[in-house]
Nucleic acid binder design. Structure first.
Lengths: 279, 279
DNA sequence: TGCAACTCCTTATGGCATAAAGTAATCTCT
DNA sequence: AGAGATTACTTTATGCCATAAGGAGTTGCA
């Protein structure tokens, strides 16, 4: 389930996101005292989504957590989409906003990716907020600013950095998503990863007896499965996803490194001085 | 006989996916002739999802396209989730199943990524099928087999190839997703990308007057925006996503290349000859 | 011929977002 | 002080959704 940005009044949603003074509930002091606030509602909504997932996030569920009906929320928030945008931007505030660049961009990007990964695992529903038309809230920009401050160190030009940012996000989000989705599947069905895989692969062998002759490369791939460490109780899909994250990140960083070196050569060698940057 | 959670269903779903003979509708020839079939239903469902998106895929919508009620489908398919799995595996059959390896793995992976990208744009709903616990249908395995046949050429060992596969998928899916989501947003809201961006950025400047001092790196990034080619009418979020796909893929392939070279060195100098890792 | 097996329909049930309208609380203005 | 305006929140209703339950009609085999 992908959740789209609220499509209502763009001005109102921007004002809510950036906390423009006059836009709160208390404008004229006329009617009864507001018992809630946008912040309280957003917090409650995040709590619901963290606990039970995006699918369980309903206006009613949030209202009930605050001792109200679902409809009460519409006094503060124009619609559910807008609420999700607010949740998204609020959650983003948790992310660290600067990284040590002493050792260069590479360890900094690694830390950034690690923190982002953990953030997604902490708030799986964030991965279901559409990326195409960004929310454009303050914390989204802080996050972007943070990553850009690291990537500036590569010396790559803006056009390339833009794509590197996109690539990093696609990768981290995708890797984290396999973890959150497998967790969701486990709790939703009540069947843990190991049991699921055992049942399915046994069934597969039964239903498709010639499996390994039909798919020799898959057979080769599976031949490699290393047993988990004794003391590691992580479900195996999560373990796989984690390894993909680690190895994939290194590959990605090697790729960026190659781009940096190429750009460095291009920049340093036109004048003539034989460029031996880094290493 | 003890039935594990989901196991009975698992057998049925595997039989449906792999088209096990006895599992079709016509077993005893007793009642009225079946007017539909799983295949017809799956095709109709794909047509609905292609045309109106995953959100519009309801049992009723599929039934109506076939001149039935929504409930009629439950005779053929146990539930909506199963139908989606069948749609997924069926759609996957469109993908090419082998690639020319004359010129090595790199151009082959590039073609593969390109084809996969186009496939996702053709069937945006596919990106909403969870990846964590794979469907394990025949075409999913064909797809995997195809990619593995290419990656075997790298000479990397299975453990690494497994991660490379994951990384490639995360990347291509993520990049394609920004396109499909921005298209969906455009049709859902009726506001095209350009207009959306113009409205929002004007609003942003109004609501946050000190934007560019607060976010200098973002300012730097935006300074770079190249105007689109005269004859290019692609919405700009799509254009951005496409560039990210192209540049990101190259970066990724450079990273894989580095891994291959490293592994090659490791293999060639195992005995101890002080391996001067790259350059 | 009659029943079992089968397809497909109608009719709940309980969920969802949200529109519309009602109730009660609290302010400002007279 | 009292009236009207304004606001918070509730109730009710609309029209979606998946799917459970049960019923109607069709067909082939005993």
């Amino acid at each position: 389930m992908v959740v789209f940005a609220g499509q209502g009044d763009a001005r109102r949603s921007m004002s809510l996101l950036w906390r423009v003074p006059g836009s709160g509930a208390a404008r004229g002091g006329r009617g009864p005292k507001p018992g809630l606030s946008v912040d309280v509602i957003v917090d409650a909504a995040i709590a619901v989504a963290d606990a039970d997932g995006m699918a369980a996030l309903s206006m009613r569920a949030v209202g009930e957590r605050l001792g109200r009906t679902g409809m009460a929320l519409y006094t503060y928030v124009p619609n559910k989409g807008e609420l999700v945008d607010l949740m998204y931007d609020r959650a983003l505030a948790e992310l660290p906003a600067d990284y040590d660049l002493e050792a260069g961009w590479r360890p900094a990007v690694t830390s950034w990716a690690e923190d982002t990964w953990e953030f997604y695992l902490r708030h799986p529903w964030v991965l279901q907020v559409s990326q195409a038309r960004p929310v454009l809230g303050p914390n989204e920009y802080v996050m972007l600013e943070t990553l850009l401050a690291i990537l500036r160190e590569t010396g790559l030009d803006a056009a390339v950095v833009r794509r590197v940012v996109g690539t990093l996000f696609h990768f981290v989000r995708g890797a984290a998503q396999t973890v959150t989705e497998s967790r969701e599947a486990a709790t939703a069905t009540g069947v843990p990863d190991e049991e699921w895989w055992q049942t399915r692969s046994a069934l597969l062998r039964e239903v498709v007896p010639d499996f390994f002759t039909r798919f020799p490369m898959v057979a080769w791939l599976e031949s490699d499965t290393a047993p988990p460490a004794e003391d590691d109780a992580t479900p195996f899909l999560e373990r796989e996803a984690r390894r993909t994250f680690e190895v994939g990140l290194d590959i990605l960083l090697d790729g960026i490194h190659a781009a940096v070196r190429r750009a460095g050569v291009a920049v340093l060698s036109p004048a003539g001085s034989a460029a031996g940057r880094e290493e």
